[in-house]
Write a protein that binds this DNA or RNA. Structure first.
Length: 199
DNA sequence: GAATAGATTGTCT
DNA sequence: GACAATCTATTCT
C-alpha cells in the first residue's frame, strides 16, 4: 500500500513543495467511488509578495481564507465563472502559499472520471487542465478548506518523474515581474501536461 | 495543428 | 460593472 502523505510534507514554501508534488497521487473518495491521478503539472503561488497570487499584499477575504490554513488543506476557487481549480495549501498556518494542480494522469477510477467529464476513457482531455481535473475528480466548492490529512481527499506517495522541467506560469501575464518567474513545474513528455514543453 | 470567440458567475473596485 | 490561475466548439490552414 502506498504511503499517505502527512502534515509535515506540506509545511514548506510553495516553490519547494511544487516540484515534489510531481508524481504524487491525488485521491478523492466519494459516494460514487474513488478517483485518483498522478500529478504531472503544477504551479507555485507564493504569499503576499507574489503579484499573481490571490493572497497578494496579504489580501484575506472569504475567498482566500483557506490559503491561510496550515499546510495540507485544500484551496478551491471558481475560475471564469464556471470551472473549479484545486490547490494544495502549503507552508504553515497564516502563510498564504499554495500550489495549483494543473494536470494529473489517471491511475484509478478512470471510468468514473470519464463519466463525470462526459467523455470516453483514455482521452487526454479527461484531466489535462485545472478545470478538467477538478471535474474528473469531483472537486467543487464542497471541498473548500478540506483537510488533506483526512480520509476523503488526500495525497499518496508515488513514483517520482524521471525528469522535472520548469517554465513560467500560465495565464498570469497581468502579474508584472512575477509573470516571468519560472514557478510552473511539469513532467516533460507526459501526455497529460496541459501545454506542451516550450521554454 | 493553430487561432478565435463565446460561455458564465463570484468577487472586488 | 469589470474581470478572472479556463474550456469547448468552430473555423480556418
Amino acid at each position: 500500500m502506498p504511503r499517505r502523505l502527512g502534515r509535515k510534507f506540506y509545511r514548506r514554501p510553495a516553490t519547494q513543495l511544487a516540484p515534489d508534488l510531481l508524481g504524487k497521487v491525488l485521491v478523492h473518495r466519494t459516494a460514487e467511488g474513488e478517483a485518483a491521478g498522478r500529478i504531472v503539472e503544477c504551479e507555485a503561488y507564493r504569499g503576499p509578495e507574489d503579484r499573481a497570487a490571490h493572497s497578494h499584499a496579504g489580501r484575506r477575504t472569504a475567498r482566500t481564507e483557506a490559503m491561510y490554513l496550515d499546510g495540507g488543506h485544500a484551496y478551491v476557487f471558481l475560475l471564469y465563472g464556471m470551472y473549479w481549480a484545486f490547490n494544495v495549501v502549503c507552508a504553515g498556518a497564516g502563510a498564504p502559499e499554495a500550489v495549483l494542480v494543473r494536470a494529473v494522469d489517471p491511475v484509478r477510477g478512470e471510468a468514473l472520471m470519464a463519466q463525470r467529464r462526459g467523455l470516453p476513457a483514455g482521452r487526454r482531455e479527461l484531466t489535462n487542465g485545472p478545470g478538467k481535473l477538478s471535474e474528473a475528480l469531483g472537486i467543487t466548492k464542497a471541498q473548500y478548506g478540506m483537510d488533506l490529512c483526512g480520509d476523503a481527499l488526500f495525497l499518496e506517495d508515488g513514483p517520482a518523474p524521471p525528469r522535472i522541467a520548469r517554465s513560467p506560469r500560465i495565464n498570469v501575464d497581468y502579474a508584472g515581474n512575477h509573470a516571468r518567474r519560472r514557478w510552473r513545474f511539469y513532467e516533460p513528455g507526459n501526455r497529460y501536461v496541459s501545454v506542451p514543453p516550450r521554454d
